[in-house]
Design a protein around this nucleic acid. Structure first.
Lengths: 172, 172
DNA sequence: ACGTGAGTGCAACAGTGTAACATCGCCGGG
DNA sequence: CCCGGCGATGTTACACTGTTGCACTCACGT
C-alpha cells in the first residue's frame, strides 16, 4: 500500500491523497485476486474497474458507459457495462450503492466483510467501513425477532469531516 | 391498536395476523396525523396509502399504479402515484425501500425515528424496527472517522422466522 | 363573484436495467 | 490440423423506474 491512511481518510481527504497510487493499488490487488481465483480480469473488465477507481465517488452505470465509449472512440451498449459490473460485483471488487443506483470500488477486496457505507452529500465521495461493530448489533436486533440476516445494506448519508469544516467556514 | 403483537410480528406472522384491523389502524392514524398537522389526506392519497397497506410487502410504484387504475376503472399516469408517494413519504406515512425500488407503510408514524428494515427474501414481507440500538452505534462508528450522519438507510435481507421454519421443514 | 393556489390529469421524455440472439476467439479432443 | 464447445463480447430491442412541463379544476378566503 502506498497510502498509509485508512480507506475512509483516503476517500475524504481531498488533494492530500495520492490517488494515482491508490488506483494502482486497487488495480494490482484486483489482478492478483482474479489470478489467484482462476477467473479472467479481461481488458474490458479491467477498463471498467479503472474507470470506477478514477475517484472515490460512486458512478452510475451510464456514467461508466459514456466514459467507456469515450475511451474507445466509439459507442458502447448498456449490457457491456452491466456484464462487467456483474463480474466485478461477484468477485467483490465493486459494490453497488443502492441509494444512488451507482457503483464504487471495494476497499477491502479478497476478504469477506459486511460493510457500512458513508456517503458525503456535499462532495459525493463514499467510504466503506468493514465489519463495523454496529453491524453485528443490527443482526442481533434482527435475531431477537427471529429474523436471520443474510445480506446487509447500510448506507449513511451526511457530511465528511472536510465538507463539514468547509460548511462551517462558509456560514461563519 | 387492535393487534397486540409488535409491528415485526405483524409483518411476519402469516394468517394469524388480523390484517383488516391492522390496515384500518394505519389509515386511522394517518387521518389523525394529517388532520393534526393541517395537511390534506385527499381521496387519492388515501387510496394510495390504502393500497400500500393492503399487505406488508413493499410495492413498486408501478404496482400501485396498476392497482390504482384497476380500482378507478380507467388508467392512471405515473406522476399521479409519484406525487401521492412524495406526500406520504414527506409526512412519514410511507418509507421508500431503496434496495427494492419499492414503498411500504410506516409502522411508527408521527414519531421521528431512525429505522432498520428487515426484508424476508422468501415471503417478501418487510418489517421496521424503530430506533434500534445498533443504529446509534453505526453513527458512532462514522463519527470516529469525522463523519456526521444525517440519514441512515439500513435494509437487512434474509429469512423471517416463519419462512426459516418452512425452509427447515422443506429440506428435512 | 373573483383570484389564488394546491391538487390532479395528461403527454412526453429521461434514467436505469434486462432479454434474446449473433459473433468472436480461445482451448481441448479427435 | 480441424472441429466442437464455451465463455466473453457485440447488437438490438425492450421493460421498469422516475421526472418535467403544462393545462385544468376546485376549494378557499376576500
Amino acid at each position: 500500500m502506498s497510502n498509509t491512511a485508512s480507506p475512509v481518510d483516503a476517500a475524504f481527504s481531498g488533494p492530500a491523497h495520492d490517488h494515482d497510487a491508490c488506483r494502482a493499488d486497487a488495480l494490482a490487488r484486483a489482478e492478483a485476486l482474479c489470478d489467484e481465483r482462476g477467473v479472467k480480469l479481461t481488458a474490458l473488465r479491467r477498463q471498467v474497474l479503472e474507470i470506477i477507481w478514477s475517484g472515490h465517488r460512486p458512478l452510475g452505470a451510464y456514467d461508466l458507459l459514456s466514459r467507456l465509449a469515450e475511451q474507445r472512440g466509439g459507442k458502447a451498449q448498456p449490457p457491456t457495462v452491466y456484464r462487467a459490473l456483474e463480474f466485478l460485483c461477484a468477485q467483490g471488487l465493486v459494490h453497488r450503492v443502492e441509494s444512488l443506483n451507482a457503483y464504487i470500488g471495494c476497499s477491502h477486496p479478497g476478504a469477506a466483510h459486511r460493510r457500512q457505507l458513508l456517503i458525503c452529500r456535499a462532495c459525493g465521495a463514499a467510504a466503506e467501513l468493514a465489519d463495523p461493530p454496529g453491524l453485528s448489533l443490527l443482526a442481533k436486533d434482527a435475531a431477537r425477532h427471529g429474523f436471520q440476516v443474510e445480506a446487509a445494506m447500510v448506507e449513511l448519508s451526511g457530511l465528511c469531516a472536510l465538507c463539514a469544516a468547509r460548511q462551517e467556514a462558509g456560514t461563519a
